[in-house]
Amino acid sequence: MAASEQIVGRGIGNKVILASVIVVAIVWMLPIAWVLILSFKSNAELMISTGAAFHLPYTLKNYSDIFQTSGVFRWLWNSAVVSVGVTAGILILSSLAGYGFARAEFKGRDILFVLVLLGLAVPEQAVIIARHQMFSDLRMHNTYPAIILPGLSSAFGVFLMTQYFKAIPKDIDEAAMLDNASRFKIFWKVLLPLTVPAQATLGIFSFLGAWNDYLWPLISATKPEMFTITVGIASTQTNFAQSEGLGFLMAQAVFAGLPVFVVYLFFQKYIVRAVAGAAIS
């Protein structure tokens, strides 16, 4: 790796490249900076012109207002519950199934695996109408299970974990079998710890996917107290809010984006490593 860095980094070309990427990165952040500035302006001033953003006075009122309106906290909590639920569920189901498909033979396994792989070609949106009908008939909408469960049917995790388990050398579990360990014990004690990098990758993808999901929560979580943050913020993004409450809307956007952004900054290193892990498999 060090060598490749040297090669790429040689010459003055390197500095030019870096400088231009820095410029691009600054442009990249401009939209967010704009929203940030707007969030510190009063609604009344912004109603006349957003040009007001460039001069005094600035205010924290939009942020203090958030603490008085009930919605955002509740929505953040819902999103957290849903995302953690989906992530945990996917990790458990995919690890078990991945081990099963990679290591534990049974009759018809390979055909079954192909059938599961076919599921990769089914986009969530193609089944969304039927799913909505199912959950309606079961009277399950507006519950956490209704928002979480559909995410667990995705075949992506199973595919990823199967590949990962297959890549682990067979002698490791064969040695354990000679020690009279049960299948589940081998899975749990011997192989699962080896898959932590893949778990991290899958976990991050699943968490972000669930956190950012929009269409399913939009039609399943229709009671405001069950909104996820994505649906909740969308519900406040009305014409009215944009004309007469723009500053507040911007503050809400910043506030809703902040938690996951902070978590991201905190785990940044691991996320890079995790994505790298995905590429290896």
Partner: peptide, 27 residues
């Protein structure tokens, strides 16, 4: 091979069939 090994993939298959395959055909 052993049939009991299928129990590793069974939990996922339940979700797969109920929440993906069934709605696909229902759709």
């Amino acid at each position: 091979p052993h049939w009991a090994n299928a129990l590793f993939v069974a939990p996922y298959l339940v979700f797969y069939v109920v929440l993906l395959v069934y709605p696909l055909f229902k759709g």
